[in-house]
Amino acid sequence: MLKKLIVAAAMLLTSVSTLVSAADEVNVYSYRQPFLVEPMFNKFTEQTGIKVNVVFAKKGMAERLAREGQYSPADILLTTDISRLIELQDKKLLQAVNSQVIDGAIPAHLRDDNNQWFSLTTRVRNIYSAKRMGDVALNYEDLALPKYKGRICTRSGKHPYNVALVASMVAHHGEAKTQEWLEGVKENLARKPQGNDRGQVQAIHQNLCDLAIGNSYYFGKMINDEKQKVWADAVNINFPNQANRGAHINVSGMAMAKYAPNQTAALALMEFLVSEQAQQMYAEVNMEYPVRAGVKRSALVDSWGEFTADDLSLATIAKHRKTALMLLDKVQFDL
């Protein structure tokens, strides 16, 4: 009797496994907002017949995946910045993906050396300046100059966008000089770090400061917002370090979950997301820069002009993330 039960259980497991592997669906955990990714998922389903199930979240992805372990239904993970990709990697929640399609679409410095994560779009960490200042050419290093004392606004230094910027400074200048720079920037703050990127541009409009740090796509969002357009009209968007290494960029990205149950469908979706069609949708909807060469920017983004981007590998920046956090605590940047 026991032998029959074991055989029956084995047959049931085989049947379930067949259903799972044959299922025409893929499960996504996403930090990206619905308005941005759902149109692409709908287009993917229309073209392939593969259904996309999405769990949207603002935080806690790594904790959820760790809790679910090998029973997690997650196939693909979408994040809003490099820091969250590295968090997932550090906690061993990802698996390598080998795809000539993906490798051919994404430049080497915008993907993991071991193929565990891949960039989908880029955005610049710009310096916004009050139009009352006129045209200015700025480096990130300039934010620590004494002439800007009491004139700079920023969100929390420990927000992932700023952590990545600080990590890039460590990569370029070393720990000691980056600490000195952070101390200078803190000394120049007009107020305690607070709010989000748009809030810093609002502060310039309100004459609370003259310079602010913020991602490029927020400029486009403010321009297209009836209430916030007046904030955007008060500033110029500057691409830093154009006379030397280029502007720091961050990314949105994707990865395959360690225990992805629908790997074939997941790979199909990942390859779709780096296609010309999906990259163009990203560019138009969220005013980000496509990672795939040859894909046009949105007309609004293109109007901001050409710029040189820092080609420092994101993997290199990621290695300095913990040092960046340590330095931000050491100088008590947010206090």
Rank of each mutant, 00 (worst) to 15 (best):
residue 190 A to V: 11
residue 238 N to Y: 03
residue 122 T to N: 10
residue 81 D to P: 11
residue 95 Q to I: 09
residue 187 E to L: 13
residue 284 E to Y: 07
residue 164 A to H: 06
residue 231 W to S: 01
residue 309 A to E: 03
residue 47 Q to T: 05
residue 210 D to M: 12
residue 91 K to C: 12
residue 57 A to H: 14
residue 286 N to M: 10
residue 260 A to R: 14
residue 58 K to N: 14
residue 165 L to Y: 09
residue 52 V to M: 07
residue 80 T to D: 05
residue 94 L to D: 02
residue 326 M to F: 13
residue 264 T to C: 09
residue 187 E to M: 11
residue 224 N to G: 09
residue 56 F to S: 01
residue 217 Y to F: 10
residue 260 A to W: 10
residue 169 M to N: 12
residue 206 Q to I: 01
residue 229 K to V: 04
residue 189 L to S: 04
residue 239 F to E: 00
residue 123 R to G: 03
residue 240 P to D: 00
residue 276 E to R: 09
residue 196 N to M: 08
residue 130 A to G: 05
residue 123 R to E: 04
residue 194 Q to S: 13
residue 228 Q to N: 09
residue 208 L to I: 00
residue 323 T to G: 12
residue 18 T to K: 15
residue 234 A to M: 07
residue 256 M to K: 08
residue 82 I to R: 04
residue 213 I to T: 02
residue 283 A to C: 13
residue 28 V to T: 05
residue 297 R to S: 07
residue 220 G to A: 13
residue 10 A to R: 10
residue 260 A to C: 10
residue 74 A to D: 01
residue 271 E to L: 12
residue 204 I to D: 01
residue 166 V to G: 05
residue 285 V to W: 15
residue 280 Q to D: 06
residue 255 A to S: 14
residue 3 K to F: 11
residue 75 D to H: 08
residue 94 L to W: 04
residue 330 K to M: 02
residue 51 K to F: 15
residue 231 W to D: 01
residue 127 I to T: 02
